[in-house]
Amino acid sequence: MGYLEVKNLHLKKGAFELRNINFSLEKGDFLAIIGKTGSGKTVLLETLTGIHKPKGKIILEGKDITNTPIEKRGIGLVYQDFMLFEHMSVKENLLFPKNRDINLFNRLVKQFDLEKLLLRKPKSLSGGEKQKVAIARAILSKPKLLLLDEPLSSIDFGFRYMFLEFIRDIHKEFNLTTIYVTHNLKEALNLSNRCGVLINGKLLQFGQTGDVLKNPKNSAVAKFLGYKNILDGKLVGLKDMLFSVSPYNICVGDCGDFKLDVELVSLIKKEAGFLAKVRAKSELFYIFVREKPPKQFKVGFKKNDMVVFEK
């Protein structure tokens, strides 16, 4: 049994539904849940925290916590807009957790560089400072599981990389099992060893981050992950499938394992060439070309460059 087991989690909230969510994490795992805005990422975190009452089971450290009150779960939650207690100083915020430990407080204040902020009110802090205080406060509650809801969305673009490093270091140092929600693939790739793709309340794919990003299970995941040229195909001896080939892996001329005659539809100028929209029979797709192609020409691609997934 995993450190965190989520089994058949189902939640109806107004018109929105989380549907049949299943995944399992080991102690110290860093899971990135990726999905578009409105796909249910925050609702999933809130459900794990105990804010919503779902069907299904949430098991943490072998204990069923599905109906455990929020304050007894030991799950730290950091929202994207931090939710600091505005009427308290930074110090009072940090010392709010019931499980606070003064040694850990002193250590984090030093490590997070919060000494100068301790007497200030949250209102006077920058986005980055608020972020640090919110994460430090959650860690001070000694959570069994840390949930981060798009924590970089309120950070200035220039500081995001620094904060990615910061979050990675914190995770490593405290070996905190973490679930990190984002719509940013780069963040997910940078931080996580596990990845889940949540679309319209369904966890369409879950697995090792690299596997998920390289091998999307279906067209919805592939589209979300930014795969271009999703085309119909039939694998010999297998059922109908979809496949994708990057525009950069399609060669012009009599080349590759699969060859196609295409007709040029339009051209978009790019830095080192053109992105050409072409038509082969009824299918439209993109290829990258260094020079302007003629109206009709041949293209090809290698079998190894195809990513195949379910319809």
Binding site: I70, L77, P97, N99, S141
Partner: peptide
């Protein structure tokens, strides 16, 4: 914001403690 109360509870505060320490002062 109700989420402030949720966060307070996730930090170990009971609903009553959250009311007196967070909701009421705010």
């Amino acid at each position: 914001d109700e989420r402030v109360e949720f966060v307070a509870r996730s930090l170990g505060a009971s609903p009553l403690h959250t009311f007196f320490k967070i909701s009421l002062p705010l």
